[in-house]
Amino acid sequence: MAKTTTVASLGAALVELGHRVLLVDLDPQACLTFSVGIDPEDLDKSIQQVLLGGVKARDVIVPSEEGADLLPATIELATAELSLAAESDPEHVVRTALRPVAAEYDWIIVDCPPTLGLLTVNGLSAASEVLIPLQCETLAHRGVGQLLDTIHDVQRLTNPGLEVLGVLPTLYDGRTTHARAVLETIADTYSLTVLSPAIPKSIRFAEAPAIGHTVLTTSPRSAGANAYRQLATNLARG
């Protein structure tokens, strides 16, 4: 959930700074769509129809209450990978779909699936930068090496300009030895930048998606909301 929370919260924070933001839900679980207050079951069209042709992204994009636009997903996206594989240029379908609307936004933030399949490769192939949210209270860091292998393949084959911004510590409790050890392991093993500020562990993050908002709305003065605001400011400065 940390990656979806980061996409939604970072998007909301960038909107607060006055930026035009498009969120793209590329995960068949549609957690991002739920998180910004949109029920996938109420949608007639989703990103699946855009990727498979016949529907333009512009006709599927919907506004969210916190100001960012959303290209939503439904569970139907789970069947899209098989169809995408038959395309002549399957790694670039997302890039092609977003090209007509790209100039209308300052930021397009893609929530990729947790798996490293064709949808994730599409998201990476369309991106200029990739941020890796890392849950510091789990063994999530074990998947970082596999993700970096996929990123390196994308850089070599489909998107040589892709830049890895670094890892973003989430669910972080700096008082615990384990959390600090995870960050040290990542930094040392993979030579990755650790982005700051770390996103603190808080029940507020679990509560927010249930009512279709981010923590910036539900708990605007919380440490978590302020951490995402600072992250957005740092990224906007370049």
Score class of each variant (00 low, 15 high):
Met1Pro: 11
Met1Ala: 13
Met1His: 13
Ala2Thr: 15
Thr4Asn: 08
Thr4Leu: 06
Thr5Val: 11
Thr6Ile: 01
Val7Pro: 02
Ala8Asp: 06
Leu10Cys: 04
Ala13Phe: 11
Val15Leu: 05
Leu17Tyr: 03
Leu23Glu: 03
Leu23Cys: 06
Val24Asn: 01
Val24Ala: 04
Val24Tyr: 02
Pro28Arg: 10
Ala30Cys: 12
Ala30Asn: 05
Ala30His: 04
Val36His: 02
Val36Leu: 01
Asp39Val: 03
Asp39Thr: 07
Asp39Gly: 01
Asp39Lys: 12
Leu43Ala: 07
Leu43Met: 05
Asp44Gly: 15
Ile47Asp: 00
Val50Lys: 04
Leu51His: 06
Leu51Pro: 01
Gly53Val: 08
Val55His: 01
Ala57Ser: 12
Ile61Asp: 00
Ser64Arg: 03
Glu65Ser: 13
Gly67Gln: 05
Asp69Asn: 12
Leu70Met: 06
Ala73Val: 06
Ala80Leu: 07
Ser83Lys: 14
Ala85Asp: 05
Ala86Ile: 06
Glu87Thr: 12
Glu87Gln: 13
Ser88Gln: 14
Pro90Met: 08
Val93Asp: 00
Val94Asn: 00
Arg95Asn: 09
Thr96Arg: 15
Leu98Val: 07
Arg99Cys: 02
Ala102Glu: 15
Ala103Asp: 13
Glu104Gln: 14
Tyr105Trp: 01
Tyr105His: 09
Ile109Cys: 02
Cys112Trp: 06
Leu116Pro: 05
Leu119Met: 12
Leu119Thr: 07
Leu124Gly: 03
Ser125Arg: 08
Ser125His: 07
Ala127Pro: 07
Ala127Tyr: 06
Ser128Cys: 02
Gln135Ser: 14
Gln135Tyr: 07
Thr138Ser: 14
Leu139Asp: 12
Ala140Arg: 09
Ala140Pro: 09
His141Glu: 13
Arg142Val: 14
Leu147Trp: 10
Gln155Ser: 07
Gln155Tyr: 08
Arg156His: 12
Arg156Trp: 06
Thr158Lys: 10
Asn159Ala: 13
Asn159Cys: 11
Gly161Asp: 14
Val164Gly: 07
Gly166Ile: 05
Val167Gly: 05
Pro169Glu: 09
Thr170Ile: 10
His178Asn: 08
His178Thr: 12
Ala179Trp: 05
Val182Pro: 04
Leu183Gly: 02
Leu183Met: 10
Glu184Cys: 01
Ala187Lys: 15
Asp188Ser: 14
Thr189Met: 03
Val194Cys: 02
Val194Trp: 01
Leu195Lys: 05
Ser196Ala: 14
Ser196Asp: 13
Ala198Arg: 01
Ile199Trp: 04
Pro200Gly: 03
Ile203Thr: 14
Phe205Ser: 07
Ala208Cys: 04
Ala210Asp: 04
Gly212Ser: 10
Thr214Trp: 03
Thr214Glu: 01
Leu216Val: 00
Thr217Leu: 12
Thr217Glu: 07
Thr218Gly: 00
Thr218His: 05
Thr218Pro: 00
Pro220His: 08
Arg221Val: 09
Arg221Pro: 00
Ser222Leu: 03
Leu231Val: 10
Ala232Met: 09
Ala232Asp: 06
Thr233Glu: 15
Ala236Thr: 08
Arg237Leu: 13
Arg237Cys: 07
Gly238Asn: 10
